[in-house]
Amino acid sequence: MATSIRLYLTCIRNTLEAALCLQNFPCQEVERHNKPEVEMKTSPELLLNPILVCRNEAEKCLIETSINSLRISLKVKQADELENILTKKFLRFLSMRAEAFQVLRRKPVQLQGLSIVISEESWVKVVAGHVHVVIPKLPCDGFCVDIDKEISELKMSVNTRGRLVATEFLKQFT
């Protein structure tokens, strides 16, 4: 299990490394604008082919690239009903604070996931000289693993709490 997720994450990382060749590129359609082309999609020649990395039906990562921006959409693992609810709530919590994360999209592109838009501007700001340090920490490893961990922790605490409540409740019948 651990190795298979590593393969999936390595694949995402390699794709991102190649896709993160961003440059400053002003808008061709609107005067004095500079917008992420991956969101605008006004000039088809400025977009590259999107890449979908799938581990299984539940875990997918869609990487869309353009000349000045990159969009990563993650679908987070949801094994059962409880995880489904937890993921939904957790991602909603994140999306509502999208502004604080700077690169997080308020609305995910796919359902039940979250999207990150990296523009050239934010990339330069974040990178500031640490390209090879940042890439390994990008959404792939750190982020995916963290979300998975967070959700399984939440699941654990819900289960523990449920068990405690049930024990307390059933005590009165003894």
């Binding site: 993160l20 440059q23 400053n24 990339w123 330069v124 500031a128 000289g129 390209v131």
Partner: peptide, 12 residues
Amino acid sequence: EAFGKFYGQSKH
């Protein structure tokens, strides 16, 4: 090097 690094990949 250092200069280039801070250059960021995108701006070059």
